[in-house]
């Protein structure tokens, strides 16, 4: 077995060195991608203009990838029995601080999500930032409290509803005689928080969706595996 691995590492090495050698022959063409994007989408963050404007189609699938992974993790981990020995940290100071951090991270995450079209960030990052705070709270809570406050069923329903809302937002333009995934709301003044048509709306929805999904993943892992 060792020999076989050695041979494949050698082959891989040869291939990579060939790639490095032939990288000289690859020219570089920088297309003019920046001008016009703001006029088209109303978002001054051109990356967001691509991410949620021109290539919204990819982003829809990206959300689906995340959802599929969450659903798969929940389903597959459901096979193993839940762990009895979740031992939360119950010191008062830790509880208060984690709660504070949770609140702060939710607000930060929300801001990052909503302002995705005027500064760096966006829905995905915002959602995960919020979820990180929630994970801290999980360390201090008994399992029943976690299950009551972050109820699996309600979270699943919300997740599905938000997903459907995003897809409907992508489909509405057809009814107005435009092509699907077109930005059908007024674009507003670039640079303001209310601008960019559907981009901030979709960003917010993605943020909430990702928050729920990441919390679900973390909760399932903790439920079946315990923390640390």
């Amino acid at each position: 077995m060792k020999n076989i691995r050695l041979i494949s590492v050698l082959l891989f090495g040869i291939f990579i060195s060939m790639l490095l050698v032939s990288a000289e022959t690859i020219s570089y063409v920088q297309p003019d991608n920046v001008t016009g994007a703001v006029k088209d989408t109303g978002a001054i963050n051109v990356i967001a203009a691509y991410y949620l404007g021109y290539r919204l189609f990819d982003t829809l699938f990206e959300i689906l990838v995340f959802t599929v992974a969450v659903q798969g993790v929940v389903y597959l981990l459901g096979h193993i029995p839940t762990l009895e020995q979740h031992k939360p940290m119950r010191e008062k100071a830790i509880i208060i601080y984690t709660d504070l951090i949770f609140g702060a991270s939710l607000i930060t995450g929300m801001y990052i999500a909503v302002a995705g079209h005027i500064s760096a960030g966006g829905g995905f990052v915002g959602g995960i930032v919020g979820a990180t705070g929630a994970v801290l709270v999980f360390l201090t809570m008994p399992m029943e409290d976690i299950e009551n406050e972050f109820n699996h069923k309600y979270m699943a329903i919300w997740e599905a509803v938000i997903l459907i809302t995003i897809f409907i937002l992508a489909l509405i333009p057809i009814l107005k005689g435009m092509s699907p995934m077109e930005n059908f709301l007024p674009l507003g003044t670039p640079g303001h928080i209310i601008s960019g048509g559907i981009i901030p709306i979709v960003d917010t929805l993605i943020g909430i969706k990702v928050l729920i999904g990441a919390v679900t993943i973390a909760q399932t892992f903790i439920k079946h595996r315990g923390v640390f």
Partner: peptide, 28 residues
């Protein structure tokens, strides 16, 4: 970075926009 409240010339936004998808796929 291609956030148009600074002055250019900017980095190419398209590869940056698409690769975020790949990070998420990697995580999933």
């Amino acid at each position: 970075p291609a956030i148009l409240n600074t002055s250019g010339p900017y980095a190419d936004p398209l590869p940056q926009a698409v690769i975020i998808t790949s990070i998420v796929i990697g995580f999933a």
